[in-house]
Design a protein around this nucleic acid. Sequence first.
RNA 1: GGGCGUUUAGCUCAGUUGGUUUAGAGCAUCUGCCUUACAAGCAGAGGGUCGCAAGUUCAAAUCUUGCAACGCCCACCA
Length: 897
Amino acid sequence: MLATFGKKRNLSPMDSRYTPQDIEDKWYSAWEAAGAFKPQGQGKPFTMVIPPPNVTGALHMGHALNNTLQDVLIRWKRMQGYKTLWQPGTDHAGIATQSVVEKHLAKQGIKRQDLGREAFVEKVWEWKAEYGERIVGQLKKLGCSCDWSRLRFTMDEGLSRAVREVFVRLYEDGLIYQGHRLVNWCPKLQTALADEEVENKETQGYFWSIRYPFEDNPAEGIVVSTTRPETLFGDVAVAVNAEDERYRNLIGKNVLIPIINRPIPIIADEHADPTKGSGAVKITPAHDFNDFEVGKRHKLEPIICLDLKGNLNEQAGPYAGMYRFKAREKLVAELQEKGLLTEVEDRVIPIPTCYRSGDIIEPYLLNQWYVHMKPLAEPALQCVENGETRFVPERYTKTYRAWLEPFRDWCISRQLWWGHQIPAWYVVSETGGERRNETPVVVGRDAEEARRKAVAKFGPEAVLVQEEDVLDTWFSSALWPFSTLGWPDKTEDLDTFYPTDILSTARDIIYFWVARMIFSGLKFLGKPPFHTVYIHGTILDAKGQRMSKSKGNGIDPLEMIDQYGADAVRFALMTMTTEGQDIKLSPTKFETGRNFANKLWNAVRFVLPHAEAGQGEFSDKHLQLADKWILSRLNTVIREVTLSLEALRFADATQALYRFTWDDFCSSYLEIRKKSITQGEGDEKRNAVAVFKHVLERLIALLHPFMPYITEEIRHNLGDTDLLITSGWPEVDSSRIDTGIEREFSETFALVEAVRSVRGQYSISPAQAINVVATYTDPAQAERVGRQEAILRNLENIGELQLGSGLAKPKFSATQVLTGGEAHVPLEGILDPEQERRRLTKELERSRNFVETQKKKLGNEKFTANAPPEVVEAEREKLASQQEKAGKLEQALAGLE
RNA sequence: GGGCGUUUAGCUCAGUUGGUUUAGAGCAUCUGCCUUACAAGCAGAGGGUCGCAAGUUCAAAUCUUGCAACGCCCACCA
């Protein structure tokens, strides 16, 4: 797997600054050319499906985050030897795409109606051909290792066949039906919407109270309140509560609708709430969800008073043809004039708006197609309840349940042209009914099948007309995990890759998409489509607001990639991905990522001229303390990163890598071994370089899923000819993990830090050597540290060094207390006794406080009796070492001159 | 109104089952360094009563309850 380096090295002039732009495209092409993204080998499959972006969309930060996350997992699993498939594709995004094209045509003064359905759809396909590859190109820029040879589109032939198959089967199972009821109608887009496509926006509005005169006594009347007065033309009754004393005797009387003077009855219904408004409420079944129910209870025929564009119709008398809001304005004025407007109250009201167009929704009585949800939702709930599919973070299980449990039927028909035309045909004849829901219907996988069915049922004279509506976009997205693998055919791919493993997505489509994939997978394949749903956080701007085009506060990932490199962008995003938390983003985060890449690059640049010297593996007998230490740390990190990825803890993984690379590998190890690498001879040099390379090879492998480009480039700069992307994932060598070595190393490192601290306090130039007297209580410790003099001298400019036990403190020296000893730095002429006293006093105070709390804790019998013995023992040791430290600080203070 | 999340250093955030962290990181700040990998760097330093209150416990940033602020989702067009 990790080949040796040094062979056939093609030394490029490596700049001190890493420039990602030079190498990214090169390596991406190399991976593609090598077929590295295709499922390979005989390993266990690991599969993910990409959340298909809108075909005409552009990459935003949310995509960048989610797709980086998926790519990290796929690359990691691929290196681990799994037969990985990351299935890519795009979504036709019915409403969104149709709107984009319509807007585009509008600029040329063309309406879709001018073109007609066929020509318009043709235009959309052209649009798709032009812009459909854009988002794919952008995902490639980010480094996504999807198997692009399998790129699918929700409206391509295969997926459309899956859609028709599902529709027919659901229909045959009685799970799809037509219903004549109120739907959310968007007058602007001219289509029905599903409940979850409606957004309620709090808006400043009015609550108008209007008097409806009694039919037999027009001088008096009953007052009703409404926020939508223009709907009064569709009123069929006024309801009061039977318990309401004020109105009880009016029940059964008729009142007149103002302006048009149509009589309607006062009825008793529980919907009327005596505490709201006047307690009497107008009933408009054709334009209000609650009223629709009231109308049904009282068998009142709904009256439609609006047309589909939002204009009032002939029911509105003088207002016929007027746009709804214009009519509202005029109507209020007229009512006021007539003395029928009794009160106007300012009120914040939730206004339902269309999630695409933003237009105000009108509930409208129409015929639409529905999916009967209960039989589908129940197993889908069950499957999450029993853990077959789990959400990460787990709390989203609740969100999922809250959406599915009400079993609201799914309105799947859309009055659009762009989408899957519903595979249902109306059987019309001379005697055929006028209303569609009274017309016989046949469904079929294609026109021929429908025709066969119609002929069998209605005879050869039957004439078929296909339903014009298309299906909700999410109807096809729901099939994504299996339609992309060839279903309804029994394909090998389906066999190998279904069910997939992890689905990663944003929380706002848990219902739109995730839930629907789960019930579809269960219904048609008998297995949930994935075992884990990872819900990532939402990307926010630096102020914590959602990024949006209208606010103009978005950070463009492609600009960031341009500026900092894809690796930096990916790494930064992953460091911020802590379980499900929202991410406040500012470009400085990418700077940190870029700096990190640069750091790694320069470490490589340093060793490259010496790589030749480090042929082969190092030999154990030449290993020094620092070597053993870095090998111990390396294997610890391999373990940490692997476990973090398994737990989907991306920030933990990157943090471990960052720390190890920067602090351990560069700041400590490289600095210590620098001299051996550049100036050492024979075995010394060979071994130092070999260890360095051994660590580096594994480090770039660990970093590869996060920073694929730079790591691939490094591997090849080091002389490897095979690709890192398909090489192995490092394995932990537990025998190298040695806490004794790590302790011994930090013992030595502590002395370095002590000296550096004194140097820093007195601003002594690094060029000036300083003398050190280190004394330890235990002679064995002094000897151990003494053996590491090379480390001390490599990390600090030390002049005379005395190491021992019971050494006296030289005059005029600054003192640093160590575990088990002290370091004195003689500073005659430099030492500031006052400053020294202040520092030592402060430290002593802190130390004494700690000793106090420890004593109290250990003096508590309940503690010593109840806490586990090892905890008590640890606390005792803490006390002892702190007491020792306090003693030493006291001594140092006393000895100050 | 219901649900969920957040509140830890000036800023952005870690802190997994309560004890080995007398609270950690990055950025920012201050001091000294162009030390032949890196100034996108090196070394050092300062900075926090872990939102507030009560409780459980030998022990609470961590568990429970209440409160507050901020954010998200759902419901609510009388």
